[in-house]
């Protein structure tokens, strides 16, 4: 006992960090890191979730690349990704609009941020109501403009776009708050100096302000891309993947195959998840590389 105590005392600073880490790292390895590799493993099997697993090698992936639903999902993921990026300039625009010091502006900022605080389930319900044929506000507006109503969520041409529009609402609010914080920290001397040199409007924004907002833009980019690829709630609430599976994305497709009431294709679902992870890894790596260079520099 005495010797073990003194061993601990001598090596206290080497052991202590691992003791502090133990609970967090155990939970994280068990519930996050290890499952990633388990899923990769499952993707090589055929498995209904209960019975024995059968090794099928790359068959799930081969099936996936022959599945039209996979390409629909992939295409929709791409549309989500591209259109979701609109939240960044939109958020910047709202932030520039609100970056003033008039009475009550704080309350305005909070209220503009509101959509982000509400759950996506509620956002989805709100927009379903907004789009509802027969009485929704949007079909009414479309009718005034074109003379005929469109049920956007039931129309394969518009359904994905309509769901993305609902997602852009909270995401723009998120980007806005990032930019408001960024604008708050801009070096006022540089701005004044540029004003002396007659810079204003767009050229001021482009040459002086945006470079200083780069950290905010980077975070906005990462959270928006991850948000776009994680999209699930809105689709589940607003369209359930339909009409005819046309609003599926990989995350929802995976859910249908492996997790929903009728989904028993674990191996196939895992393969879809692995593809989604591979896409996300591009952006995760980007983020880590940048953080790493920050660590090195300071």
């Amino acid at each position: 006992m005495a010797s073990s105590t003194s061993f601990f005392r001598r090596n206290r600073r080497r052991i202590a960090p691992w003791l502090f880490l133990a609970p967090g790292i155990t939970m994280f390895l068990l519930y996050v890191i290890y499952p990633v590799f388990q899923s990769i493993n499952i993707s090589f099997y055929e498995w209904d979730g209960l019975g024995p697993k059968t090794w099928v090698g790359l068959q799930n992936y081969a099936d996936l690349f022959d599945d039209p639903s996979f390409y629909t999902s992939l295409k929709n993921n791409l549309i989500w990704l591209v259109l979701y990026l609109l939240a960044i300039p939109a958020g910047l625009a709202v932030a520039l609009f609100l970056n003033q010091t008039v009475p009550g502006i704080r309350l305005y900022k909070s209220l503009f941020f509101f959509p982000f605080v509400i759950s996506q389930v509620v956002v989805g319900l709100i927009f379903s109501w907004f789009y509802a044929p027969g009485f929704g506000l949007l079909p009414k507006i479309i009718k005034v403009l074109t003379g005929s109503e469109i049920a956007v969520l039931a129309d394969e041409r518009y359904a994905t776009l309509a769901v993305i529009a609902a997602g852009l609402w909270p995401q723009t609010a998120y980007c806005m708050i990032l930019y408001l914080t960024g604008l708050n920290n801009i070096n006022p001397e540089q701005v004044e100096a540029a004003r002396m040199d007659n810079a204003k409007g767009w050229s001021m924004l482009w040459h002086i302000i945006l470079p200083q907002l780069r950290p905010a833009t980077f975070i906005a980019l990462i959270v928006t891309v991850i948000g776009a690829l994680r999209s699930f709630d809105l689709i589940s609430i607003m369209t359930v993947g339909g009409p005819y599976g046309s609003t599926r994305v990989l995350s929802y497709f995976m859910y249908e195959q492996a997790l929903s009431e009728y989904g028993t294709a674990m191996g196939y679902g895992a393969a879809i998840a692995v593809v989604l992870l591979a896409i996300m890894l591009v952006f995760i790596t980007l983020f880590i590389v940048r953080m790493l260079s920050q660590e090195r520099n300071g």
């Binding site: 290890y34 388990q38 899923s39 979730g49 895992a270 983020f287 880590i288």
Partner: peptide, 25 residues
């Protein structure tokens, strides 16, 4: 740093890659 970046990276993975094993566990 490796442990740190493990936490950071894990935070960004899609939920679907965790769902089957986590439900199983």
């Amino acid at each position: 740093l490796i442990v740190f970046f493990m936490f950071v990276a894990g935070n960004f993975v899609p939920f679907q890659i965790l769902a089957i094993p986590v439900r199983d566990l």
